[in-house]
Design a protein around this nucleic acid. Structure first.
Lengths: 142, 142
DNA sequence: CTAAACTCTATAGTCAACTGTAGAGTCAAG
DNA sequence: CTTGACTCTACAGTTGACTATAGAGTTTAG
């Protein structure tokens, strides 16, 4: 059986570099279904299961949660085209990323400002009560 | 006692908008120490404790974990100037943010690409086996 | 003085995506 | 046919920053 037709979980794990436990977790979650179960209870995966894993990895890399991925795949399993769903998720995700990039950029600029300020004035007034002018001077404008 | 000198935890909570449970959590973690404990066991905070809370909030907003914040404050409590530590953390944090921004920007560009591709070709070949060309076409170059 | 409001500790639960463990059954090579 | 590698289920533990609950003691306003 390991010759053709199916992959056992360990084989899929080796192919994909994903831990066996994680694959079982995906299986339990319903994100990655084995094609069938043997009489022994073994999970048997289709030969292109590693592509399905790739799909999951890609979607994760793009910022989808396993729950969202499951939603997409569930829609597919009901025979529908999930593209509208995917596009909605995608639109939301792009929006979120935009916000995230902006905020992160602001934070970074702020941090750099404090670093610069600190370099120009390392030890302000000997024993001031401040923890550190670096952080004490941060204004919370967010 | 609530007239002057000290703040009880609930008063600090009201001042800062941080839940009482969270303040206790900070206290347990050692991130925000009450000035003293009453005979009753009550936590009493200094009047400028809300500024300390602000400090914590700022540091969190800038991406520091409570553990890092605790490190900074522990150094301070030992009478040292934590600026070197803070600067190290800061440098690391700036670097991380930079990487994060780059990656997020890449992701977003990729997502936009797929969205565009999808809009130009909504339902490719009727019942193709693909889940969705949107995601199937994603290449994992990360 | 009493009742409401507040505080305490200790413990458990939450989220997400796993990882690790125990105990038992199964399969493959020699 | 045995031994080691593999698989199964079910459950506990991890991380970080909380939130919630129970049960008990304390304070304060009327």
């Amino acid at each position: 059986m390991s010759q053709v037709a199916y992959l056992k979980i360990g084989e899929l794990a080796k192919q994909t570099g994903i831990a066996v436990g994680t694959l079982r977790y995906y299986s339990d979650l319903g994100v990655l279904h084995p094609v069938q179960r043997g009489n022994n209870g073994y999970r048997y995966y289709s030969l292109d299961a590693s592509q399905q894993v790739e799909f999951i990895k890609k979607a994760q890399a793009l910022g989808f949660t396993l729950e969202e991925i499951k939603q997409i795949l569930d829609v597919r399993d009901r025979g529908e085209k999930p593209c509208n769903l995917v596009q909605n998720l995608l639109d939301k995700k792009i929006e979120q990323l935009e916000i995230q990039i902006k905020q992160t950029t602001l934070f970074k600029a702020e941090l750099e400002e404090y670093r610069t300020a600190w370099i120009n004035n390392p030890n302000p007034k000997s024993d001031s009560e401040e923890v550190c002018p670096l952080i004490s001077s941060v204004s919370l404008n967010s």
